[in-house]
Design a protein around this nucleic acid. Sequence first.
RNA 1: UCCCCGAUAGCUCAAUUGGUAGAGCGAGCGGCUGUUAACCGCUAGGUCGUAGGUUCGAGCCCUACUCGGGGAGCCA
Length: 502
Amino acid sequence: MNNNYTTIDSLSQHTNREVSIAGWLYNKRGSGKIQFIIIRDGTGLCQCIIEKGKVSDELFEQLKHLGQESSLSVTGTIRADERSVGGYELAATDAQVICPAEGYPITPKSHGIDFLLKNRHLHLRSHLQWCIGKIRHTVIDAVRRFFNDNGFTLIDTPIFTAIAGEEQQSLFEVDYFGSPLHLTQTGQLHLESAAMSFGRVYCFGPTFRAEKSKTRRHLTEFWMVEPEVAFIELDGLLELAENFVSSIVARVLKDNKSQLETLGADIASLEKITPPFYRLTYTQCVEILTSERARGFLAGQLQEMQEQKQQTEAKIAELEKQQAGQIKQWQRDKNAAELIELRSELAEINTKIENNPKHAQLAAEFTWGKDLGGSDETIISQMHDKPVFVTHYPKQAKAFYMKTDRENEKVVLNFDLLAPAGFGEIIGGSVREDDYERLVARINEQGLNAENYEWYLDLRKYGSVPHGGFGLGIERTVAWITNQKHIRQCIPFPRMMDKVYI
RNA sequence: UCCCCGAUAGCUCAAUUGGUAGAGCGAGCGGCUGUUAACCGCUAGGUCGUAGGUUCGAGCCCUACUCGGGGAGCCA
């Protein structure tokens, strides 16, 4: 940095010294002859104390009327104080308003998601978004560190691509000098060819899927990291994946504890994320889903939710009764705020109660051969306290490139990794079919045009080896670690089905 | 594409069986020397998503449409 401002995250090194900080007005409170203004500078928050008499009267008045998100610099002495946000505060002697702001739309109170997304360019300044952004940064750094430290070579795969990794998926089509081309939905096929050169490789970049999915787990543009390894079998891939995910979580726990706390993440359960993870086959999952145990588990959940619903309704009724009677104004206001919260809580519980029997039915009627649905994965994941590998899916439900299990031709050597506590899938991967004839047969079976896959088939002609890899969704991983309901909070500028705000 | 829910002040939400549209926050003014989403008093702020219908009377009931939220399928 070549300016004279001290960053807020380094204030502890400047105790009892005079410094200047520069940032934006995050929040302020006034009390006659003293004002508390909280400044954010991108590295943290700092409370500045403005006392009448310690600064000029003109400045005191100016600061008193300064709007949220005005930019300014403040000079003063740093002192430790437990009452202050970061543990340190600045006793101001001078300040300079750089650009006053009026009517900033995002107030410190609650807002709806639609409003926040429309104001995404400003919402990024809010504290929770800042915490998520910091953790996303750590996750991405940990991803690169893990592969770079374990003998992997980074290979950048193309964004424009002629062939598809998964069949029957909608891809975004672009006009490429008059011919149709697609935006990549995976770097895997190209990565396989690179694995035959470098042995262990990975790619990391944006990926695009035109799936018309309106759920908390879907974006049309998201970031995915994909390792690919030559000479590896399914067991090796699972080990790689669990070490990889564990290293990411450990790194976030080390670097971002305070952000995790702010976001209300479940730190105790994150500390449990160490190898080995649970391993289930698809067939075992089907058994669990259709079992008495799963039925009981869901019924138990339903009962819990209904009790929760009754309690919430009772609380609402009690508060409404109070509101109708004669009570003090401050109590009335407090009740009103609590009612709003309870009502939205109730709406959420009702949705869950409504969905529970549907999901129970889907699980109970699950038959071998179908792909696991989102709700099925949620159930399996809720029944475990650590991530769960699900392996050996039916061949007909999976992509052409997955290697058929030679010991059971009905299934493929693939796996999904389900994050715990109902977060669902964060990784999908497989051993790749390495036999030329079998791969051609699979391509034809799925009605794909083998001509388009000539170069991919070449890899099976010239020194084919057992190999495999997987893809990890960055936003899903961040959402799981930070305890966010929706992955749109975990990417700075989310792109969703039929919707791009900014 | 299908199912469920919603749209009221800048924001978050209320409005009992259809009967004169309310609160908090935010904004403005004033008060208070340690606040933590501070607090207290006052002020301003609304064609109740759009179009039609039922009714003496519609924010509330009916129909269509638009937009949004959640879920299913599909997936990271």
